[in-house]
Design a protein around this nucleic acid. Structure first.
Lengths: 140, 140
DNA sequence: TCGGAATATTAGCCTGACTAACTTAGTTGG
DNA sequence: CCAACTAAGTTAGTCAGGCTAATATTCCGA
């Protein structure tokens, strides 16, 4: 039994902790927090309503309200209304928000790209093969 | 160029976001927070001094002081002194802390094990092959 | 022995999460 | 048709977990 699930689970767990620490270090000191970056990313394609955003990011509505308040104060998003339902608030990127999103994304992807470029072709292949599996986790 | 680093970086980034959300969901509502669990894990083998703990978890000393205060209040760790250096505070697991650590670990590993057991042997192999690569990231 | 380095804590601030309570707007059944 | 329920958001209050700056204490070396 070469790939014993329990032993594998322990190793996955340990690697996850490593990745979390890594994320914490690379994200520190950027012009938006990692949560804000994630929310901006949700808004890239089209406006969203508050409930959608909250669900997408697995937080409660009040949490999203506060986050959107801050992004709005920073001028990165704007609230709008749904003409068909006056209860609904929509949120969309401002021009500045879109610029900021792209800049931060470029910095993050660039950083990761340099890390990956330092690997061997075999290592990148191993990583690429595992990504669909990782993406599948948690859907059970 | 099948494993283009930039495209791979975007996919890794997206999978990372998924894993972070997954972690948030699975960790919610456990008897210790994920940070506390990590700190307890550090103390499993032997006592540590505050500076060591802070470095291991990539936080500043005051942050660790507060975390240890909470764990001490909860009776899960105890502070001690270094006979050779009166500036140093050591921290060690209490019996209750050790029990709690083991229980939470069992729950977490169990959860992950069930997820992994639902994968095919090929998927587990792909995951196992990628773990050393993931562990290597961020060391450059 | 005295001054700088090291260890830890305290205090004050911020982000980001939660629940409970509230307002406002839509929906539906008698 | 309107009263009661439901849905969408916001506000208020609490907590964990980060940070920096300032403050003891203790150690050590010139």
């Amino acid at each position: 039994m070469r790939e014993d699930p329990t032993r594998l689970a322990e190793e996955v767990s340990s690697v996850l902790r490593h990745l979390v620490l890594l994320l914490r270090r690379t994200v520190a000191g950027q012009p938006v927090t990692s949560q804000q970056y994630a929310v901006l990313g949700s808004l890239e394609r089209s406006p969203r309503r508050m409930t959608e955003l909250a669900e997408e990011h697995a937080v409660q509505l009040p949490t999203m309200t506060v986050q959107i308040n801050r992004l709005e104060d920073a001028g990165l998003v704007a609230r709008g209304a749904d003409p068909a339902d006056a209860r609904v608030r929509t949120v969309e990127l401002t021009g500045e928000g879109r610029e900021r999103l792209l800049a931060v994304r470029q910095a993050r992807i660039g950083h990761l790209t340099r890390e990956l470029a330092a690997l061997t072709e075999q290592e990148r292949a191993a990583l690429a093969a595992a990504l669909p599996v990782l993406a599948k986790l948690g859907l059970s």
